[in-house]
Design a protein around this nucleic acid. Structure first.
Length: 416
DNA sequence: TCTGGGGTCCTAGGACCC
DNA sequence: TCTGGGGTCCTAGGACCC
């Protein structure tokens, strides 16, 4: 049996927890660069603002309706998320944190399960100000549907699938495209086969689904039948770690890209070290503006593997530069770039290289540890690589950002 | 006309999720 | 003018091995 705990309109709820005047208003939170809408209050949803809408297309309408847009404040959301997850973990220790705003718990089916869920919901609301919806079902895919059903319930916001007949009835009301695991590409193909609802999918012949759509959809079908096929993950090691951005202004020169990607590499390596990992390689990514009408869209990636897994910034800076050289084309206007560290594992878990001495690496590791400690203590970038740019913030727009109420001494909430 | 059977590894691309 | 950033998994095809 699984329980899904899903925060309602999470980013908006976080902002509202500290700014009560945002209650009962149409509020949206924007992605980086104030580009797209990534969270909406119920009032904003009612205005018909779609998830992912470009802000410039809805800005005027939103303002006219008395609504408000905020830039995203990930420090705040990450901290609030951690508070919510800690509360859940106290009640349901066997937890899989699935994303910043939702978690699955594996539980024994008991008579009091709904009461327990309700009481957890109240605790979270009281201690963080965040409202959650809860779905309970025999499989994760059914939990997602139950969670969706719970959202509009005004009173208790818990939905429990315990009766096969009732579940089948609900599934016949769920559009197949709204099933977890079925996106915009699979939906039309399923519709073409006469499959329009989740219940249609449950009844589809297993062989056909497997042949035409592969193993993932076959698992989804079984999950909808109440047979749990997706493993409970327990938040194991991360496999890759990414840092990428779109730029406000396009970038042309190799040198500027090298510095920007250097910053990304540095930041990714810091995160990697903080979680005690090391990576085996780096992917470098570049692209021009995909909406541009003046220039043909160009995007490319390159992968550079290391001889031996490492967490040292210098090694990845070197590899990054090599990768960038492979895909950089003169004269293009780059709108977006990024890097991904891959083949991540716990430090020291990997095979040693027979011909490499470890003395140098050891020394650099100590140096970086000292740098990380200093930056932790005195503020990010107090000490940094000389080859990197002095400042890169100019290329990201965040015009309507709220305070870091819980993570910065300078920005604490003033009660009076 | 006719061309085996069993593997591994890598890459690119596609699909999905939040 | 303005269109995000972070992940996972699967599949197909090519190159190689014996």
């Amino acid at each position: 049996m699984y329980i899904l705990i899903d925060c309602d309109n999470f980013f908006v709820s976080c902002e509202r927890a500290f700014q009560p005047h945002l209650q009962n208003r149409a509020v949206v939170v924007l992605s980086n660069n104030d580009g797209c809408v990534v969270a909406r209050s119920n009032e904003a949803k009612k205005l018909g603002i779609a998830m992912g809408s470009p802000y410039f297309k809805i800005a005027e309408d939103l303002r006219a309706q008395g609504g408000l847009a905020l830039s995203s404040n990930y420090e705040l959301y990450a901290d609030m998320s951690q508070r919510v997850m800690n509360l859940i973990k106290e009640r349901f220790p066997n937890l899989e944190i699935y994303s910043i705003d939702e978690a699955f718990a594996e539980v024994k089916e008991t008579e009091s399960i709904v009461e327990e869920a309700l009481s957890l919901r109240n605790t979270i609301l009281q201690q963080t100000g965040i409202s959650v919806s809860i779905g309970i079902a025999p499989s994760k895919t059914l939990c997602k549907i139950a969670g969706e059903r719970a959202k509009p319930l005004t009173r208790d916001k818990v939905c429990y699938f315990h009766n096969a007949e009732a579940t089948a009835k609900i599934l016949s009301e769920v559009e197949v495209g709204n099933v977890w695991g079925i996106g915009r590409n699979l939906k039309p193909r399923l519709n073409f086969l006469g499959i329009f609802t989740a219940q249609d999918l449950v009844r589809a012949p297993a062989g056909l689904i497997r042949r035409h759509f592969g193993i993932n959809l076959e698992k989804t079908v079984m999950e909808l039948q109440g047979i749990s096929c997706l493993a409970h993950e327990h938040n194991g090691e991360q496999q890759s770690l990414m840092c990428s951005r779109s730029f406000e202004h396009e970038v042309q020169t190799f040198e500027e890209l090298r510095r920007i990607l250097g910053e990304f590499t540095d930041s990714a390596c810091q995160r990697l070290r903080r979680q005690g990992g090391e990576a085996g390689g780096i992917i470098v990514y570049l692209s021009t503006n995909r909406f541009s009408k003046n220039e043909e869209f160009y995007q490319n990636t390159s992968f550079i593997g290391l001889n031996r897994a490492s967490a040292l910034t210098s090694k990845f800076l070197k590899a990054m530069e090599q990768g960038l050289r492979e895909i950089y084309r003169e004269g293009k206007h780059y709108k977006r770039a990024g890097i991904t560290l891959t083949e991540i594992r716990k430090r020291g878990a990997g095979q040693r290289n027979l011909f490499e001495t470890e003395a140098d690496e050891c020394r650099e590791q100590k140096l970086l540890q000292a740098v990380d400690d200093l930056n932790e203590k005195l503020g990010a970038k107090t000490i940094r690589f000389g080859s990197l740019s002095q400042e890169i913030k100019h290329f990201i727009r965040r015009e309507h950002r709220s305070q870091s109420y819980t993570t910065s001494w300078q920005e604490l909430l003033k009660v009076h």
